[in-house]
Amino acid sequence: MRLTQGCFSFLPDLTDDQIYGQVQYCLAKGWAVNIEFTDDPHPRNTYWEMWGLPMFDLADAAGVMMELAECRKVYGDRYIRISGFDSSHGWESVRISFIVNRPPQEAEFELVRQEVVGRSVRYTTVRRPLQHASP
């Protein structure tokens, strides 16, 4: 199963050159770029751990790529994403977010359907335990 959160999630993983291009786009727009990581990619978990502080006032994506390389060294077994935050008046929110690193084995989720009072249906997303391959 492939986790599909954020921009480009239905495409093959971006190469570092493609990531560089997207980061450069964010910087050209004046957006602050930040790197985040998690081992809990549940769709409702929007608060990932930040790698350092958001990077303001950068002109070249090389600085972000350097930080991404360091984050991958430490947390290469987790999900890592890059976000571009637009602080301009009227937006003041994340404009782009995409996964740039995945663990060797993807997390798996199951959609559980439950009928409740009044013929209503409730859906819950549940994380499945990882299935390890037999030797």
Rank of each mutant, 00 (worst) to 15 (best):
I99R: 04
V74W: 01
F109H: 10
S83M: 06
S97Q: 14
G30S: 12
R127L: 07
V23E: 05
Y123S: 06
W51D: 02
I99F: 03
Y20N: 14
A59E: 13
P129D: 14
P41D: 08
Q114M: 09
L111N: 10
D60V: 08
S134K: 12
W31R: 14
Q22W: 04
Y79Q: 13
T46Y: 01
Y25E: 13
Q22D: 07
N34R: 15
T15I: 01
M65R: 03
Y47I: 06
A62F: 02
G63D: 00
R81K: 15
G90W: 06
Y47V: 09
D13V: 11
L11K: 02
F10P: 00
K73D: 07
S97D: 13
W51E: 00
P135A: 14
W91E: 09
H42R: 01
L11V: 00
M50S: 04
G118R: 07
D16M: 09
S93W: 02
K73F: 05
D40V: 06
F85G: 07
D77H: 15
R102F: 06
A69E: 11
E115H: 03
V117E: 12
V100M: 07
A62T: 04
S9F: 01
Y123K: 11
G6E: 12
T38P: 08
I35T: 05
R81T: 03
Q5M: 11
K73E: 06
H132W: 11
L27W: 13
D16N: 14
R72D: 01
A32F: 04
L14D: 00
G118C: 08
R127I: 08
